[in-house]
Write a protein that binds this DNA or RNA. Structure first.
Length: 347
DNA sequence: AATATTTGACCAAG
DNA sequence: CTTGGTCAAATATT
């Protein structure tokens, strides 16, 4: 089982290598590039087959415990060196979907954001940095409801409905930019937190007004690992359900050709891959999944979801990503501006 | 002009 | 009282 993980991670690493070698590869014959793709695809393909080969009974165990064997981080040292897949920075209580979402998202973001659009701003109509994670089907619903809490409850501490994930920040580019997760957020506050070196930022959904979307999140860098953000989500997005759906829907569409996968991924992930575990926050429904970009099969049963997920992730990642035309605009501008970002500290 | 962020004040919970 | 979450005015960005 361990080698399966290793395999997957190895694939990821190759992808990462590819990412960093992109500039060089640009000057190389295209077949070199495609060879690289082959390698990666191969690995994921193998992983897929292994997954499929697993006895059905072991499928359920594919959940968190599968990826987080124990609290002992020793077992997690597959490829600790991988910048984007820093396992050690992963909260062991996270479930598979969240891990995948953050890792894959970040990986993709790394590629796209830093290689394609170093400036966080794109001359194209697509906006990858917004779509990569595109779907954030995480449940995070207020099962407890906050009905007409109109009055007294302006803020409550420690929300039990909150879900916290950790997502690695790209080392290149602006590390200050909080991880993009497909939704549009508006910052409404920032606060120094007592024992943290870094301030905590508070965001609410941009469409709060229009759609009464209650979703919120707070982002904070970890003390010991500034390259990791801790993101706590609160409240469920309702803004996607409107017929005039704002944000990520259309973005997803326009980006479909670039990476149909993360969108699909999200769809599957939303199906509660590891429902039972991770504190099983009950109502996971958010169904942002309506925004499947292209019809990669459409529905997958929950159980199979586990298995297809990886495979499809790989599939979509490299099938679409490697498609000829996308390489076109890969290299035009490629300055990597570092911004080490001085840390501030409070006494 | 509209929209987003910054930042100190405000307020509830502990 | 302290702390953290939010508000809202001022400011910045688009």
């Amino acid at each position: 089982m361990d080698d399966l993980i290793s395999l997957i991670l190895h694939g990821c690493r190759l992808a990462k290598d590819l990412e960093s070698n992109l500039p060089n590869l640009a000057n190389q014959p295209p077949n070199l590039l495609s060879r690289s793709f082959d390698d990666i695809i191969n690995i994921f393909h193998t992983a897929k087959e292994r997954l499929n080969a697993l006895p059905p009974s072991s499928s359920p165990s594919l959940s968190p415990s599968f990826f987080y064997p124990a609290q002992t981080s020793t077992q997690l040292s597959y490829h600790p060196s991988h910048p984007h897949l820093n396992l050690q920075s992963i909260d062991p209580t996270l479930n598979l979907q969240e891990w995948l979402r953050s890792s894959v998202t970040q990986a993709m973001e790394g590629v796209i954001q830093t290689q394609l659009f170093p400036d966080h701003k794109t001359p194209f109509t697509i906006r990858p940095h917004q779509t990569v994670a595109d779907v954030q089907a995480m449940d995070v619903s207020d099962s407890v409801a906050r009905p007409g809490s109109s009055s007294s409850q302006r803020h409550r501490r420690s929300d039990q409905n909150a879900r916290t994930i950790r997502v690695p920040a790209p080392r290149i580019g602006n590390t200050e930019i909080p991880p993009e997760d497909g939704f549009t957020w508006r910052k409404y506050g920032q606060k120094e937190i007592l024992h943290s070196k870094f301030p905590r930022s508070y965001y609410r959904c941009t469409h709060q007004k229009l759609y009464q979307c209650p979703a919120k999140k707070q982002v904070q860098r970890l003390d010991d690992d500034p390259f990791t953000f801790e993101v706590t989500y609160n409240g469920e997005h309702t803004c996607h359900m409107s017929s005039t759906a704002p944000s990520s829907a259309e973005i997803t569409q326009s980006t479909a050709m670039l990476e149909p996968s993360p969108a699909n991924l999200g769809t599957w992930l939303s199906m509660d891959v590891g429902a039972a575990a991770a504190g099983g926050s009950g109502s996971s429904s958010t169904m942002v999944g309506g925004y499947r970009s292209s019809g990669t099969g459409g529905d997958v049963s929950q159980k199979d979801g586990d298995q297809y997920m990886v495979a499809n992730m790989a599939d979509a990642m490299f099938n679409s990503g490697s498609s000829s035309n996308s390489m076109e605009f890969l290299f035009p501008s490629m300055d990597e501006k570092w911004k080490p970002e001085a840390e501030e500290k409070k006494d």
